[in-house]
Design a protein around this nucleic acid. Structure first.
Lengths: 104, 104
DNA sequence: ACTTAATGCAACTGAAAGGTTGCATTAAGT
DNA sequence: ACTTAATGCAACCTTTCAGTTGCATTAAGT
């Protein structure tokens, strides 16, 4: 799973709203997700596919309609990626501070 | 600061690599950032502007060259946003579990 | 069986994005 | 003063993207 794809998928207002609503709860199908946003079902479907490709959601067909399920792990890896960036950043600051203190 | 803009800015391989390198350390100017990636300076400059607009970095001119500085807080808010999504998701799962258990 | 609701797939359009080249400007170093 | 390095700004091109319309398919309910 490419973390850049995850961020890319979240970096659209419509898709981010989709994810928000999915996280908020209540079971969703492609139709219910689509009808809540102000776009056509086919338009929403494209957005959902982007989220599927990024592995942020999964689609499970059940007879006539297909369930939209949020994949928590992928979101978590996005979070972890940022946390790791911050960690490196912090380490660098500490190193810099040490360097400055040594020179005093 | 719009979190969707933050994700959008991070959702490009070139920009994500820029952020990675900035987090890794060493002071950077627009030139040094550009020369590390396989694009022209002007191309890189556009990417940097996207990061500036998302408030992920700030540019500080110092005489002839301009320093590229990472803004930790913005990254942190991206992380916090995901954390909040997960929190809601978890709460929903707990509620569902309680519901199921009550019916047994 | 028939109708209706949920979905898939494809083609098209306009706008935005990534990247380039070219030129002007300004600051440093000798 | 002159040269060089770092930058800004604008025009341009190509590709991607968001969104639409249209049509076909399949499953549920009556």
């Amino acid at each position: 799973m490419e973390v850049v794809e995850v961020f890319r998928a979240l970096g659209d207002p419509v898709r981010l709203e989709m994810v928000r609503r999915l996280a908020a709860g209540e079971p969703h199908t492609i139709s219910t997700v689509s009808s809540q946003l102000n776009i056509t079902r086919q338009g929403a479907r494209k957005h959902l596919q982007v989220l599927v490709d990024a592995k942020i959601i999964a689609l499970n067909p059940h007879g006539r309609d297909t369930e939209v399920r949020l994949l928590r792990d992928t979101l978590d890896q996005g979070k972890a990626f940022i946390a790791n960036l911050e960690l490196q950043w912090d380490k660098r600051l500490v190193a810099l501070r040490t360097f400055v203190e040594r020179r005093q």
